[in-house]
């Protein structure tokens, strides 16, 4: 089980959901669009800084582990399907569909960078999952889609009690003599069927009751007031910097990249677009400074 969102007293947690979404989008854009491993590393450092700013380094640890595992997978798969590059490390056999299975240095490096990229993406989602209040995200969603966000809220609300009920049901039936353990896969699946039917029926009954209560509280067609959250200066700062990062990433990807993997690796330090990591590093440092000050000085906090 992965950790679920908990309220914390940091600037990231206090952001307007729209600013938070922009921040996540800018991180994703940077991570997905930048080619040069060095620039990618800067984006990674920025992500790490945000994780520390949000004080969720403990909570994202499982995501880090998962990301590392996936990165490892990509690192292994890539050289096996990608045979371009000049520096062949191992000569492989020739197969009918896939061609010759050579392992090249370039493919290995490309795999490693792709893996790193994937890890950063997973980490970015981990940050979003542990530092962005899903409830506030739902609020933003409810401005355009009232009914689906209500269904979503209901599902979130019903889920924990349903899991509890399912566990309790399993216990009760175990005492009653139901054998849920042991046996083959098919027997275990068959033992599950009545549970599913009971859970299904139970939640339909519950849905009917909730619908009744919703009707009693005036749910239906007509004018509905929706919640509006204040957009504060800090949200503006974060949105502005996020948009800046995103723009830099997009602009840098237009035209020829300053880094190539094939046929031979170029030197990441010889990049011509040094303004890309510079702008990113600048904006991330401003974010960190703003965030630390927010935490330390109440006056600053009240001001922005």
């Amino acid at each position: 089980m992965l950790p679920v969102y908990r309220d914390k007293d940091t600037i990231i947690h206090a952001l307007h959901p729209l600013a938070a979404i922009l921040l996540l989008a800018s991180l994703l854009a940077a991570v997905l669009l930048l080619e040069n491993p060095l620039y990618l590393a800067v984006a990674g450092a920025g992500l790490a800084a945000l994780v520390f700013l949000a004080e969720v380094s403990r909570e994202v640890r499982p995501f880090l582990r998962l990301g590392l595992f996936l990165a490892f997978l990509v690192l292994i798969v890539n050289p096996l399907v990608n045979h371009r590059g000049d520096h062949v490390l191992v000569y492989g056999p020739r197969l009918p569909v896939l061609g010759r299975l050579d392992v090249t240095l370039e493919a290995l490096v490309y795999g490693a960078v792709s893996g790193f990229r994937l890890m950063l993406v997973v980490l970015a989602f981990g940050l979003a999952g542990t530092a962005l209040n899903p409830d506030h995200l739902l609020e933003v969603l409810s401005r355009i889609s009232f009914r689906s966000s209500l269904s979503a809220a209901l599902a979130v609300r019903l889920y924990p009690s349903l899991v509890l009920e399912a566990r309790e049901m399993r216990d009760v039936q175990a005492v009653r003599g139901e054998r849920l353990h042991g046996g083959g896969r098919w027997e275990r699946a068959r033992a599950q069927f009545p549970f599913w039917l009971a859970l299904f029926q139970g939640s339909l009954d519950r849905a009917a009751n909730i619908a009744e209560s919703m009707t009693a509280r005036g749910f239906g067609n007509g004018k509905v007031t929706r919640i509006r959250r204040a957009f504060r200066p800090r949200d503006a700062i974060f949105s502005f910097l996020a948009l800046g990062t995103m723009a830099v990433a997009v602009i840098s990807s237009i035209g020829k990249s300053d880094y190539r993997y094939f046929p031979a690796l170029s030197n990441p330090l010889r990049g011509t677009m040094i303004w890309v990591p510079a702008v990113m590093a600048g904006s991330f440092s401003i974010l960190v400074i703003v965030g630390r000050c927010w935490k330390r000085w109440p006056w600053w906090r009240s001001r922005i």
Partner: peptide, 24 residues
């Protein structure tokens, strides 16, 4: 989905079914 203007019964059942599926 939004355009359909569903009533309380559909909105509730969609939430409940999603919870069952996710729990499973």
């Amino acid at each position: 989905y939004e355009e359909k203007d569903f009533g309380a019964r559909e909105v509730a059942v969609v939430g409940a079914l999603a919870a069952v599926g996710a729990a499973g």
